[in-house]
């Protein structure tokens, strides 16, 4: 076995086929997802996310009623309708907890393999570096979908267990049935998944820069915090529409009647831009570097 895998040269079989069958992208994806969701750390992250709504529900249950207009939005509605636990929890987890967990997963993608010394085996397979990068990013995206869904599901379950569940009052004052409220919850989860896609791409790129996964994870989380702080500074107003965290709290538009899609569209476009930029950077970095571990 080689001790290092040099940068790929297109058109040249830089690495001879070492009798390992070339795996299809799909089977690589399946095995990657199996690794990701078979990991104790991934489950710990999802459990920590699920703990947020449970904590909120229990705290509201044990304390006296929240006066209207105090605390995070929707908090005062929980005692009337348990489904608001899910909305409150998603709101609370957007600034830190979701970026934190996504940062851990996305920062680990390439650097984690390099750190464990498994990256070169993946590359001599030979799966191809582009394919490996795509599979790693797809796995990180899967986590971006799973994370907000976990918060929503745990919130709805905890709210239903501790509080009455009934028709939900939207921001516009209109009332929808619990079934439609579940649909809106899925919409918000989708909005948050899209919101986190750009951060995942940044994490993937940072992960190709280092063989220390903790460094890539921390850097990804720091980037998300810096972006949110910059979004609060009026002096940087010209920059705000370009920050990947700019629309993160715009998911309230899913709770208007009728649903306002403007923020969803703009957010999706912005995140696509981040995916393109940092995907291209990750591709450039990962295909030109020599893998030593």
């Amino acid at each position: 076995m080689p001790s290092s895998v040099p940068a790929e040269v297109p058109g040249a079989p830089a690495v001879p086929d070492l009798a390992l069958p070339r795996r299809s992208g799909l089977s690589l994806m399946v095995s990657e997802l199996r690794v990701l969701f078979g990991r104790r750390r991934t489950w710990a992250l999802l459990l920590a996310l699920a703990a947020i709504p449970i904590l909120i529900a229990v705290a509201v249950r044990l304390s006296s009623s929240v006066p209207a207009g105090r605390g995070p939005a929707f908090l005062d509605r929980i005692t009337q309708n348990g489904l608001f636990v899910a909305f409150t929890a998603m709101l609370v987890s957007v600034p830190l907890f979701l970026p934190l967990t996504v940062g851990v997963v996305a920062g680990d993608t390439i650097a984690g393999e390099a750190n464990m010394g498994t990256l070169r085996y993946l590359l001599v397979a030979p799966a191809g570096r582009v394919r490996l990068l795509l599979v790693k990013y797809a796995a990180a995206l899967t986590f971006c979908i799973a994370a907000p869904l976990t918060v929503a599901a745990a919130g709805a379950a905890a709210g239903a267990a501790l509080f009455p569940v009934g028709p939900v009052t939207l921001l516009s004052g209109d009332v929808i049935q619990p079934g439609e409220a579940g649909l809106r919850m899925l919409l918000i989860a989708a909005y948050l998944a899209v919101s986190l896609a750009g951060l995942s791409a940044i994490g993937l790129f940072l992960s190709t820069l280092t063989v220390v996964p903790v460094g890539a994870m921390a850097a990804t989380v720091v980037v998300s915090v810096v972006s949110q702080v910059a979004d609060q500074l009026p002096q940087l107003e010209w920059l705000h529409p370009w920050l990947f965290s700019h629309y993160w709290l715009g998911f309230g538009d899913m709770l208007r009647q009728p649903v306002l899609w403007d923020a969803f569209g703009r957010n999706a476009l912005l995140q696509t831009g981040y995916i393109a930029v940092f995907g291209a950077l990750a591709y450039a970095r990962f295909t030109t570097r020599d893998v030593l571990s």
């Binding site: 080689p2 001790s3 290092s4 895998v5 040099p6 830089a14 030593l292």
Partner: peptide, 12 residues
Amino acid sequence: MGSETMGSFTAG
């Protein structure tokens, strides 16, 4: 990078 690679696997 890659200076310590085995000869037959270097890019060149």
